[in-house]
Design a protein around this nucleic acid. Structure first.
Lengths: 341, 341
DNA sequence: TATTAGCACTCGTTAGAGAAGAGTGCTAAC
DNA sequence: GTTAGCACTCTTCTCTAACGAGTGCTAATA
């Protein structure tokens, strides 16, 4: 455990580094408000902190910079959430102020979050793993084309275009929709295809003329991607960070963001609450230079979505944590209690 | 008009610069295949071309670099589409090979295009200005919430969540849907709201108990954003271009891409065919350092979408033009003829 | 005993000076 | 009309020196 003085020095160094991104030396530190120690004393303390692995030097005679372990200590022991009333209210107003579709809400949230923090926000839409089918409908567009529409109990709508077998009758389409609705409503989305195969197929055989032609189409319509969708806000913010003044780093960052699958894997979670990973604590190579802060929001039906913020390890943890927590409850509020009950 | 020799020199310089991004001098040029002139002669020709404004020097004793006017001349008079069979077939296979939703098709196209060119592809989805309503449906989710689904004649599906007035009956909802379908099918999407107000409202008053409560909700459901959606592929490609080795330039580029409205304005077009704007020919400041090549695709119902490719002025025009034209017909083919008839 | 002042030393950054190299324009010869 | 030769220009690279911010250590101080 650190003493008061060591804590003060550590905190001051990190706070300073978070805003300036430059190493700070003992002399500069001694002049800071709230610190009434000479440079030499500070040097001793700094040496101690370095020995503990909380600070590092960029070279043998440079000022100190927080290590990842330092940030970890800072996050775990030093900071107490600072409620910046203004920003919180701003966010609340924006999120609550609009009557929004889930998708728009999530996109908007990502933008607001990145705007307020100057980092990059990534939000993973809720996966619909546990959603069940509410209704299936088919709208015929022309002689040979129709669009199938699935609605889940969560209000999610999925639609898919498909071609119709030549010469199929309207009545037959209707029959099929009836069969599907009769048998599939209430079934979890994930199981639809299986159910179609095991239960509905024989029914179709009995009642439909063109069943073999239709079956494949319907089957592909019911294929459901179970992954949530990604919403990104403020990608370009990362370029304003001095540690990413290097094209290669930026390039890596963007190619990582472009790899949706990888990102989804990274963000997917089923546990509540805030989570912070700093630099190399991350298991995925691509973000070992970043800090990732995630939290989740919940919708009715127990589906989780993830809100994440990506920034340099030198992050304004204090502010970011408050904002993320607030956004999490905010979103859960709107999605869960708001219009869903 | 340029003479044969001048044309050859210009073409060679531009071709070289397109691949290397470095100025080329007379001596290096004289050694190139197909050029049997001494360095001195080439210098004379180069001086002439510079006087005409087709070439520029980066400094007084540097090699020459094509000017924007030079590219313009090159595009207009020099290049003839080169059919790279391999790439074209590859693209064809990918686009035609999958049975896709319009949205997926467009996203995939953007990715393929950027992949094949190493530039950034931007595709503007068709605006649904002229689409008409095919069907409207309401699916009740719970006591107080429902989702409204609009299907257009083009197969586009729009859905919106809304809250239900307290205590409303199923039968009443059904009645309303019937009224809406009866009165609004076939009406252009853009007019829906107006029609609702002018025609349907009185009907609702006559037949529905809760009409005043429902009206507002329905009205907001029918609010339709008429702008197409943006699909971007290969954003990070731009960073691989040597002229964008500067964080500031990259930053500008990305903030521009993030500004959807501006991009849509930039890309929106209602005219057929290929269009090339080079550097400062562009009216929008943000892309004065780029070349923009656009073409359009068509869907049934005469809606246009735009396919665009953003790259440095030093662009592989030849290849890019062929690919874009091919993709344009490809997409029109799939969307128009394929399953839509 | 804890703190501080002093000092030698380290290392990154910056500026300047050459040297090298690629390229040009011009002139004169072919 | 084409080409070889040459002086000149400008960028780029490398090397060096000076500077300064910061450190660790030692000795003096409260």
């Amino acid at each position: 455990m650190l003493g008061d003085r060591e804590l003060l020095i550590l905190q001051t160094i990190i706070d300073d580094f978070i805003t300036t991104a430059k190493p700070i030396g003992s002399r500069a530190l001694s002049k800071k408000e709230g610190i009434n120690l000479s440079a030499a004393t500070i040097r001793n303390v700094m040496a101690d902190l370095e020995e503990m692995g909380l600070l590092v030097k960029t070279h043998s005679s440079s000022g100190r910079v927080p290590s990842e372990k330092g940030y970890r200590y800072y996050v775990d022991h030093v900071i107490s959430p600072s409620l910046k009333e203004k920003e919180l209210h701003l966010m609340e107003d924006i999120i609550q102020g609009n009557m929004l579709e889930m998708e728009q809400l999530v996109q908007l949230s990502a933008e607001v979050l990145s705007e307020l923090t100057n980092y990059t926000a990534v939000i993973l839409g809720p996966d619909e793993m546990n959603a069940t089918l509410k209704q299936i409908q088919i709208v015929r567009l022309s002689e040979q084309s129709a669009v199938a529409i699935l609605v889940t109990n969560t209000g999610h709508v999925e639609h898919r275009l498909f071609t119709l077998p030549f010469g199929i009758e309207i009545t037959e389409l209707e029959k099929m929709v009836n069969i599907l609705n009769d048998r599939l409503i209430g079934i979890p989305i994930m199981e639809l295809q299986y159910r179609l195969q095991s239960e509905v197929y024989t029914l179709m055989q009995q009642h439909l003329q063109h069943h073999e032609l239709i079956y494949d189409h319907i089957s592909s319509v019911l294929q459901y991607e179970n992954t949530g969708k990604l919403y990104v806000g403020g990608q370009s913010n990362m370029m304003r960070q001095p540690e990413f003044n290097d094209i290669d780093k930026i390039y890596q960052f963007y190619t990582m963001l472009e790899d949706e699958e990888e990102m989804i894997k990274l963000l997917k979670t089923d546990h509540d609450g805030l989570n912070i990973t700093i630099g190399n604590e991350n298991k995925v190579d691509a973000i070992k230079q970043f800090s990732l802060i995630t939290t989740s929001y919940k919708m009715n039906g127990n589906q989780f979505g993830t809100i994440a913020l990506l920034g340099p390890t030198r992050m304004e943890y204090r502010k970011v944590i408050t904002l993320l927590q607030a956004l999490s409850t905010e979103m859960t509020d709107v999605l869960f209690r708001g219009k869903w009950k």
